[in-house]
Simulated scan of single mutants.
Amino acid sequence: MAIVASGTTASPTAPAARGVGPLLRSWRERRRISQLELALRADSSARHISFVETGRSRPSEEMVLRLAEHLEVPVRERNALLLAAGYAPRYRQTPLDDPALGPLREGLERLIRGYEPYPALVVDATYDVVSANRGITMLLEGIPERLLAAPLNAMRLTLHPDGLAPRIRNLREWRAHLLAQMERQVALHRSAALCELYDEVAAYPVPRSAPETAEPSGRAPYFALPMRIEHDGRVLSFVSSISTFNTPMDVTVAELAIETFLPADPDTVEYLHSSWAGKSREAWRE
Score class of each variant (00 low, 15 high):
1 M>D: 02
3 I>W: 06
6 S>C: 07
6 S>A: 11
10 A>E: 12
13 T>V: 15
13 T>W: 14
14 A>V: 13
20 V>T: 01
20 V>N: 00
23 L>F: 07
24 L>H: 10
28 R>S: 08
28 R>C: 09
32 R>N: 12
32 R>L: 12
36 L>C: 06
41 R>A: 05
43 D>L: 09
47 R>I: 06
50 S>H: 09
52 V>D: 06
53 E>T: 04
53 E>W: 04
55 G>I: 13
55 G>N: 11
60 S>Q: 01
61 E>V: 10
65 L>M: 07
68 A>W: 07
71 L>Q: 07
71 L>A: 06
72 E>F: 08
75 V>W: 05
77 E>R: 15
82 L>Y: 06
83 L>S: 13
87 Y>L: 10
89 P>V: 14
89 P>H: 13
95 P>S: 09
97 D>L: 04
99 P>K: 02
101 L>A: 05
102 G>W: 04
104 L>W: 05
106 E>K: 13
110 R>T: 10
114 G>C: 13
120 A>N: 10
120 A>S: 12
125 A>R: 14
128 D>V: 00
129 V>Y: 00
134 R>W: 10
135 G>T: 05
135 G>R: 04
135 G>I: 02
143 I>D: 03
151 P>E: 00
155 M>K: 00
156 R>G: 00
162 D>E: 10
167 R>W: 11
169 R>G: 12
170 N>P: 03
170 N>S: 05
175 R>P: 03
178 L>Q: 12
178 L>E: 07
178 L>D: 06
188 L>M: 12
191 S>C: 02
191 S>N: 03
191 S>L: 01
194 L>K: 04
194 L>I: 05
197 L>T: 07
198 Y>N: 10
199 D>N: 14
199 D>Q: 15
203 A>Y: 01
203 A>C: 02
203 A>N: 03
205 P>K: 04
205 P>H: 02
208 R>V: 08
215 E>V: 13
217 S>I: 11
219 R>N: 11
219 R>I: 07
220 A>K: 15
221 P>K: 03
235 V>W: 14
237 S>K: 09
239 V>A: 12
242 I>A: 15
245 F>M: 01
246 N>I: 14
251 V>M: 01
252 T>D: 02
255 E>P: 06
258 I>T: 15
262 L>G: 12
264 A>T: 08
265 D>E: 11
268 T>W: 14
269 V>L: 12
272 L>R: 04
273 H>T: 14
275 S>N: 12
285 R>Y: 11
